[in-house]
Amino acid sequence: MIPPDVAPADLSIFTLFWQAHWIVKSVMIGLMACSVWVWAIAIDKLILYARTSRAMDGFEQTFWSGQSLEELYRMVSSRPAHSMAALFVAAMREWKRSFEGGPRSFAGLQMRIEKVMDVTIMREIERLERRLLVLATVGSAGPFIGLFGTVWGIMTSFQSIAASKNTSLAVVAPGIAEALFATAIGLVAAIPATIFYNKFSSEVNKQAQRLEGFADEFAAILSRQIDERA
């Protein structure tokens, strides 16, 4: 029996964390770290996608502005390029390599260029998709981890009930509150992770399609050139 004049537990976030069992504590810390990580990735990806899409817009504009391919190649290849520019550089490099060694058969050139562009697209998509799996994992596993902390916390709070032989709200409530806190953190980490994952995967799809479209167009242009020269 708890004497009546014992002050009830202070339930600030800090004490909620501090009074918890070490397992619950580690769950909370882990989920907190997950949350930080998720948001870091999200911010990073937001910036990356915005930049990529802007770069694509800019490159497409210059590409269709009627500039000669040679000139464009010289301009783009001077600095490291991403996405569409990388695609263009890869294809052009293959093209040039085939022509530098004197006129040879153009039979395999078309295929080679397509292969090179495919590889570049894959590499680009891989770059865009990197760490999105973290978001997916946190989004699906976060609530479970939080729930584990909650179950553990409630277990310990029941043990404390058994020890004090008292079931009044004052005894039960702090333990349960601290246990639920773990689930709350899990949800806090998981909800943004899920939302961002969905948003980003659709974004990656969109950009990949755009890259593929450009690759097809560029391959068509190059194949026309090959046919003209052959």
Partner: peptide, 24 residues
């Protein structure tokens, strides 16, 4: 940048929680 912004944001939210959630 992502890590920095995220960490700062979490610290802010936690600090706000400490202030506003500390009732009994």
């Amino acid at each position: 940048t992502g890590y920095t912004i995220s960490a700062i944001g979490h610290a802010l939210v936690l600090g706000w929680g400490l202030v506003s959630f500390s009732a009994k």
